[in-house]
Design a protein around this nucleic acid. Structure first.
Lengths: 248, 248
DNA sequence: AAGTGGTCTAGACCACTAG
DNA sequence: TAGTGGTCTAGACCACTTA
């Protein structure tokens, strides 16, 4: 086995171990069902305390990559319902995780004023401008979703004039150029019927069931910076969730 | 403030503290925006180590009830989009949390054999029986969802003959009589168009968009025990989610 | 400068699983 | 009975926020 952890000087110890193991699992080098070394063994192998190892393993269990069984060991998870938990992945990442090739067609890219509800959520004054970006999102060149993003203009000067948003990931641009990286989001998921216009764009029959996901995304310690409304084709997209009991 | 933790002899220390604080917050005794005592102070007040306190706070942050800011403190979260995260709540609990009165009409209650996919998920042999319970779920006497539950018959003997499932919560019965309490679930959420039959039951137009939620529920250390397919009226129901970044 | 949450250690006991 | 993961402790240093 590989005893070294990549990205050696980056971040806390537990994240390095976690990301290292995550890579081993998602790449298939650690196959589903495989039993990992015990926590004490990992602790010794990597030179981390057991608690640090446990923190890494806990994150991976939370993410559904590992299953831990008391008295028995820690195993690479076999999925029950095939998982496709999106977490905070962008559309592009999400599609790649599903084994599809993402694509985009920019339909609208301009400065607008926000409606009051959205202005309030994004904590901008009603008279401040926002960048509106509407893109048809493709998977293997087939329309998968219609996505409309609103960003406070003050947070991303120049974004409205970029001409590469049909090719690059918006989230990568936001992170690299504006130091805005998604850390937390609240979403509302609903089912709606496709309007004539949306149906034409998504190439489905009018009235087709769509998954509408509205998301307010926040950056670490910088508050909300993005409001997105996405309409996913109901027959092409499903949302996977892992739900855990909290109370009791 | 209250220094005592209820349910004193139950479970690990961190769950007691966590549930105690969760009750304080959801009841409103700890208002949104309130700053909690520091981890060290809580540690001293309750007589728990700081790590144990941290574990409880981490769970509550994960659940979206708390926000922790380094150098600043731990605060009761203010919701941005008003939340209606279902977690593992039953339909009845879910509706009550939304301020609606739940109701039920039993449409089907019988022993069946499972299809292979479902049998596999519930880990029962194909020839073993399962209880099938289909109920129209009402909110303020208006049809809200159509819910079909499958439970391995071996786990809940006698359930198929109960006559009160239009009045009592199935989850309460399962917990009280069969020691089956939901601890974890995997869900798949999709948008679908209502069939003629479903539309008639839900009193919506055929083709209306519905939220289909399929759930495999597991009990603590007892594995999966319930498979549910729910069809929610798209115009009456929305699903709230809090999403947090895992990596980095 | 004082206080906060974030990380980390070395060690301990427990409940559970397996041979 | 030996090994596993689950919980818990007492202490330490760090980065960050607030004043």
């Amino acid at each position: 086995m590989e005893d070294e952890v990549r990205q050696p000087t980056d971040g806390p110890l537990y994240t390095r171990l976690r990301d290292h193991l995550a890579a081993e699992i998602t790449s298939g080098r650690l196959a589903a069902g495989t039993r990992l070394a015990s926590e004490r063994a990992l602790s010794e192998r990597y030179g981390y305390s057991r608690l640090t190892v446990r923190r890494a393993l806990a994150d991976l269990e939370e993410a559904g990559l590992l299953v831990r069984r008391r008295g028995s060991g820690t195993f690479v998870a076999e999925r029950l319902i095939r998982k496709n938990v999106r977490g905070l992945a962008s559309f592009s990442e999400d599609m790649r995780q599903r084994g599809l090739t993402p694509g985009s067609i920019v339909l609208r890219q301009e400065l607008v004023f926000l409606e009051e509800e959205q202005a309030q959520m994004l904590k901008v004054a009603a008279h401040e401008g926002a960048v509106c970006l509407r893109r048809l999102r493709l998977a293997n060149d087939v329309p998968m979703a219609l996505e409309t993003v609103f960003l406070p203009a003050a947070l991303c000067p120049g974004l409205v004039r970029r001409t590469d948003l049909d090719r690059v990931s918006l989230y990568e641009v936001l992170e690299r150029e504006y130091n805005l990286s998604a850390d937390y989001a609240e979403e509302v998921v609903e089912a709606v019927n496709a309007s004539e216009e949306v149906a034409r764009l998504l190439r489905v029959a009018p009235g087709s069931a769509l998954l509408r996901i509205r998301r307010l995304t926040s950056a670490k310690d910088r508050g909300p910076f993005e409001y997105v409304e996405s309409l996913y084709c109901g027959d092409k997209y499903s949302l996977g969730l892992n739900v855990r009991r909290l109370g009791q």
